[in-house]
Design a protein around this nucleic acid. Sequence first.
DNA 1: CGCTCCCGTGGATACGTTTTCAAGCATCTC
DNA 2: GAGATGCTTGAAAACGTATCCACGGGAGCG
Lengths: 354, 354
Amino acid sequence: MDKRATIKDVAAAAGVGVATVSRVLSGGSASPQTRERVLAVAAQLDYRPSALGRNLRQRRTGGIGLLVPDLTDTFHAQLAEGVLACARSAGEPVVVGSTAGDPEQEAELIGMLLEQSVDRLIAVPSGDQETWAPAIRTGMTVVFADRLPALPSTGDVDPAAAAISDLMVLDGVPSGPQGRSSEVPSVVADDRAGIRTAVRYLRGLGHKRIAFLGGPGHDRRAAAFGEAVGAPVDEELVVFGTGSRDSAYAAASGLFQSRPDLSAVVAGGNMLGEAAVLAARELDLRVPRDVSLVMYDDVPWAELCAPPLTVIAQPGRDMGYRAAELVLRSGGRRQRSVVLPTELIIRGSCGPRR
Amino acid sequence: MDKRATIKDVAAAAGVGVATVSRVLSGGSASPQTRERVLAVAAQLDYRPSALGRNLRQRRTGGIGLLVPDLTDTFHAQLAEGVLACARSAGEPVVVGSTAGDPEQEAELIGMLLEQSVDRLIAVPSGDQETWAPAIRTGMTVVFADRLPALPSTGDVDPAAAAISDLMVLDGVPSGPQGRSSEVPSVVADDRAGIRTAVRYLRGLGHKRIAFLGGPGHDRRAAAFGEAVGAPVDEELVVFGTGSRDSAYAAASGLFQSRPDLSAVVAGGNMLGEAAVLAARELDLRVPRDVSLVMYDDVPWAELCAPPLTVIAQPGRDMGYRAAELVLRSGGRRQRSVVLPTELIIRGSCGPRR
DNA sequence: CGCTCCCGTGGATACGTTTTCAAGCATCTC
DNA sequence: GAGATGCTTGAAAACGTATCCACGGGAGCG
């Protein structure tokens, strides 16, 4: 009922001008006694500067945007927690959107953020570079996390080919020579090394027919997988879901049924890993006796599984935190991208080839 | 580089006044030809109304706030997804904060939202009614989800007693007779029925010594538990963690060690359930042979566990969606609270008392 | 002693929108 | 035919803040 005090009220109560109040509160210069009086009055009136006025004046919203495909994916939740932690310590609000891995929804949410004048954005992208061009062109400070937008699909290239060329350009460190999107900083895990380690591990156990089970945005991982297993890549052994749990399950189930000869699976994300466990169980495939499984993302429940899942761990929370740091410190001009290490955590879901 | 077009630009280009443009875009009345011209010009200029200006004018931020203890908790992630889905369909941004179950951080985040003039808030509260009084007094439209804030701790009452009196007041339907916070609508599951069903189920299996493992905000569930097992409640069998995974693990481990005579555990949340599985395994307790476990929240990984977890399912996504609906349709004055049913899903983590 | 320079201060302006208000104009009614 | 009524329209105010600019006074320097 009692409306919030405005800067004018404070100014009047302190007997100074609004400019002085603004300066005191923004850390500008002011005489000690003036500053003290203003501060006292502000505290007594319980004055809180309205972000609305400030934002309008400076033509930008203070907060930062965060776009992830699905919070129910534990890795994305970890990443979000990292972003939130960093943002909180900076006192910045964060606007979250979930895209369901759908470029269209992603574009829509970008539009919404633009409308809100949110000019700093952290994203786990689902769309390709074309989707992201508008946002970047508008001057938004964008930081990609976990993955990079794929090359625009000029015509109909199959994902694998695009993914490989993507890898060529990006080559471990994402700051490739060309490609517009390489100008935007990113925080990603060293997918190439992670996948390579996992594949070598499986090879060491005797596995020959190894499959990759990916979701949207896992092109880099798929490409790294292709590289790690070496040519010729059996294209039937690289399958993709579309982002939903159902689709992941369908992909996993289809893979197991169409290729009973495979003996090991690398899941490109924890939702895919979950689907693989479920599908295998449904088809009476025992893990790891009948099929070995290694899953991207170390999540708390990986350890609870039957058997406990061998995973490629990437520091989700750290990635979010670092991404938030990058996007907040973007005052310091051009930012370097960050590549964090992965770690193969061996539990019980891999065994020797039967 | 090219600054965004403002309403003035559109007005000038269309040869009309800004008021007309505003009306056309807000669905006001205008002559067909004027409307068409304005729309055409706006489209051609790629004009998007700035939320900043609008918000300042109407003295409120369009968006809605969402406060949860921890997105890494799968249930909270589900709830958040529900909120995001509803908000997206309404075109509203949502500002998310995670409180780590800490009332202090919660209060801080409430302050931040206040500063942003976010006047609609959905919260899984951690603090008590005292923490929430300021937000509600300011005129914020608040909807609680999953739980209600506890009664203010006047002096040092132990959580169990407070929880029980809480239950007395709230009695299933949260709109109790007194208590200021009972005026705020909420979306909660029928904890009482859920817990009662679980306890009866365990009783039916022959279990006598059943423990409750809770976290912050689980007072109602603890109270319902006490009611279900009937007096006298063995207070040692009701233990609380503080919200973190570590604390949950410590609580679970401590419980198992101090009371080797217990034969069943009800976990008040999925993080507690996770901790219980881990702690049991560490102490070489077999589930369900040595100890039975039923966990609150049905989460995707409950099925993957060894053994698959018997759970009290509550519709997290729906709860979020309904809460968002409530908070958005709050134009229609006083809203009724919603109580959603729970379902006991029997899997493999409960067995007969050994 | 006088000039300059700098610091502290307050008035005024701009940010982009919605909304009120009055005016203009055409149509309808008596 | 004149007054009333309704619809469309544009000018202007307001929202709360940050910042530009001008002004005043004190101190330092010549």
